[in-house]
């Protein structure tokens, strides 16, 4: 029963969100070699502790978020928009 504090919508039940995946991955360019894609898609760390994850507020504003979450305690350390443009708007910089 995690509550995620969506930067746009405020604190909401995790049932409004969908888990995406590993938020630390930088995906290779489309023409990168198969090895790079293999590493990005299949080789994942199984972190015991704080990890960065992507979540989407599917039943809310639909923003994709970067969430730092402790896999042992479910404690959420930070939430921010995945897209820097969204972040800039929410911080009033645009």
């Amino acid at each position: 029963m995690i509550i995620l504090n969506c930067p746009f919508c405020g604190p909401r039940d995790h049932s409004e969100f969908d888990y995406g995946g590993d938020g630390s991955i930088t995906y290779p360019s489309l023409d990168a070699p198969v090895e790079d894609w293999h590493a990005a898609v299949f080789l994942r760390d199984n972190i015991c502790g704080v990890q960065t994850e992507t979540w989407q507020h599917t039943q809310g504003c639909r923003m994709w978020l970067l969430v730092e979450r402790d896999t042992m305690s479910h404690e959420v350390h930070s939430i921010r928009p995945a897209h820097p443009g969204h972040a800039a708007v929410l911080e009033g910089k645009v």
């Binding site: 969908d18 938020g23 599917t58 994709w64 897209h83």
Partner: peptide, 13 residues
């Protein structure tokens, strides 16, 4: 829809 949004928000910003 979710995949398109993911690509635009997280990958091809």
């Amino acid at each position: 829809m979710v995949f398109l949004e993911e690509l635009l928000h997280t990958r091809w910003q």
